[in-house]
C-alpha cells in the first residue's frame, strides 16, 4: 500500500505548476524540505544556507561556510540541519534557529575537498558523506565522530545514498561507477558500471558526467541513477539527460531513459510514493521537471519551469516540490491542477 493510497492524496504530474516563488540575493544551488514539512532550506552561491517558512515565506540566512554548500540533510527528529560545503566542512545547525545571526552547533572538518553529497542512514544514527577526496565517510550523528572510511573510488564522488533496509550504502562517482558498500563487514564493495553517464571528450580533453543523483524502486530491487550523456560539447553545455536502471542483484543495466531533445543535465532523481520517478533537469533548455513511469520507455511528462533549475526535493505531503533556480528564485511547484479563485459577483 503506497503513501497516497493511505492518505488518499491525489497528484497529477501533468498539472504541475509553480505555486509560490521566493527570491534570494544570489543564484541558488540546491534545496530540501525539513522532515516536518514546515521549512524549505536552500543553498546559494554566496555560501549561505537559507531557510524559508513554507506557511508565510519568512526567510532566515545561516552563514558560516566560506564556500558553496552542495548538499543538505536533516537529523531524524528534524531538529538539526546539516550542510556540506566545498570548504571541506560539515556544519550542524538548529532547524528552529531564532537568532539574528545563527551559529553552527557543530563543525566537522570532514574531507579534503568538496563534500558533494550527504545522507542520513535509515535508522537516523549515521551520516554518510562523499566528495572530491574520493573517500566515503560515515559519521555518528549523535556526537559527530568518524565511524568509518570507505576507500575505493578512483575519482571524485558525486552522490551517496543508503539502502533503506539492509545497511548498504551506494556512492556514485564522476566516471559513472557506483560502489555498494557493506558498512558492517569489510567485504569488497559491489560495483555497478554506469559508464553511459560519463563522457571522456578527447577533443576538449575533458572528463564529464557523473552520478548526479540516485534512487531505489519501492521494492528495493532496482537502482536508478541520473546524469547526462551525448556530451558532444561539454564546455558548451551540449548534453542530454539520461537515467539508468540497474538490477540490484545482477548489477546489469536493465533500462535507460533518454530525455530526448532536452539540452540539460538530470541533477536529481526521486521516486514518488505513487510509484513514478521524477527528475529535475537544467541547462541550455532551461529548467524542467520530468516524469517517468518505470514500466514505460519514455518520460511521460515534462513540466517547464521559468528558469534553469539545479536541485529539488519532495515535500512530505507528496504534492509540493521545491526547486532551486539560477535566477535566485526558490519555486514551490504543486503536482496538482491549479485551484481557480472564485470571482465575486
Amino acid at each position: 500500500m503506497t503513501f497516497f493510497e493511505t492518505t488518499e492524496v491525489t497528484v497529477d504530474p501533468t498539472a504541475t505548476h509553480v505555486d509560490k516563488t521566493w527570491k534570494y540575493t544570489s543564484p541558488l544551488i540546491t534545496c530540501r524540505f525539513d522532515p516536518a514539512g514546515k521549512y524549505v532550506f536552500a543553498t546559494a552561491q554566496d555560501n549561505a544556507l537559507i531557510r524559508w517558512t513554507l506557511a508565510d515565506g519568512a526567510m532566515k540566512v545561516y552563514k558560516g561556510h566560506d564556500s558553496w554548500i552542495r548538499d543538505i540533510e536533516f537529523s531524524q527528529d528534524g531538529k538539526t540541519v546539516v550542510s556540506s560545503g566545498c570548504d571541506d566542512r560539515l556544519f550542524f545547525w538548529d532547524v528552529e534557529e531564532a537568532a539574528e545571526e545563527p551559529k553552527p552547533t557543530r563543525e566537522i572538518h570532514a574531507h579534503k575537498g568538496w563534500i558533494r553529497s550527504i545522507q542520513l542512514s535509515p535508522d537516523g544514527t549515521l551520516l554518510a558523506s562523499g566528495g572530491n577526496d574520493r573517500i566515503v565517510k560515515i559519521w555518528n550523528m549523535a556526537d559527530g565522530k568518524l565511524v568509518k572510511e570507505l576507500v575505493g573510488h578512483e575519482i571524485d564522488i558525486y552522490s551517496v545514498m543508503w539502502h533503506p533496509k539492509d545497511g548498504t550504502l551506494f556512492s556514485g562517482d564522476l566516471t559513472g561507477k557506483i560502489y555498494r558498500w557493506d558498512t558492517v563487514s569489510d567485504k569488497p564493495a559491489l560495483i555497478y558500471d554506469g559508464k553511459d553517464l560519463y563522457t571522456a571528450n578527447t577533443g576538449q580533453k575533458a572528463g564529464y558526467g557523473g552520478i548526479r543523483g540516485m534512487a531505489l524502486s519501492e521494492d528495493n530491487k532496482t537502482l536508478y541513477a541520473c546524469g547526462l550523456h551525448k556530451a558532444t560539447n561539454p564546455f558548451g553545455a551540449v548534453q542530454e539527460p539520461l537515467i539508468l536502471a540497474f538490477d540490484l542483484e545482477s548489477k546489469k543495466v536493465v533500462k535507460k531513459w533518454e530525455v530526448a531533445g532536452l539540452k540539460a543535465i538530470a541533477w536529481e532523481i526521486k521516486l514518488h510514493p505513487q510509484g513514478f520517478l521524477f527528475c529535475v533537469c537544467g541547462g541550455g533548455a532551461g529548467g524542467y521537471l520530468t516524469f517517468i513511469k518505470p514500466d514505460e520507455d519514455k518520460d511521460y511528462h515534462r513540466a517547464k519551469l521559468p528558469n534553469v533549475s539545479r536541485g529539488m526535493d519532495l515535500h512530505p505531503d507528496g504534492v509540493q516540490i521545491c526547486v532551486a533556480h539560477y535566477d535566485k528564485q526558490l519555486r514551490i511547484c504543486r503536482l496538482q491542477a491549479k485551484v481557480e479563485e472564485k470571482k465575486e459577483g
Binding site: 576538449q204 580533453k205 575533458a206 572528463g207 564529464y208 561539454p234 564546455f235 553545455a237
Partner: peptide, 16 residues
C-alpha cells in the same frame, strides 16, 4: 594545456 574554454561547469573543469 587544453582546454579551459569552460562556458559550462567551469569549476569542475578547473578543478580537474
Amino acid at each position: 594545456h587544453s582546454n579551459y574554454d569552460t562556458h559550462n561547469e567551469n569549476f569542475n573543469f578547473h578543478l580537474e
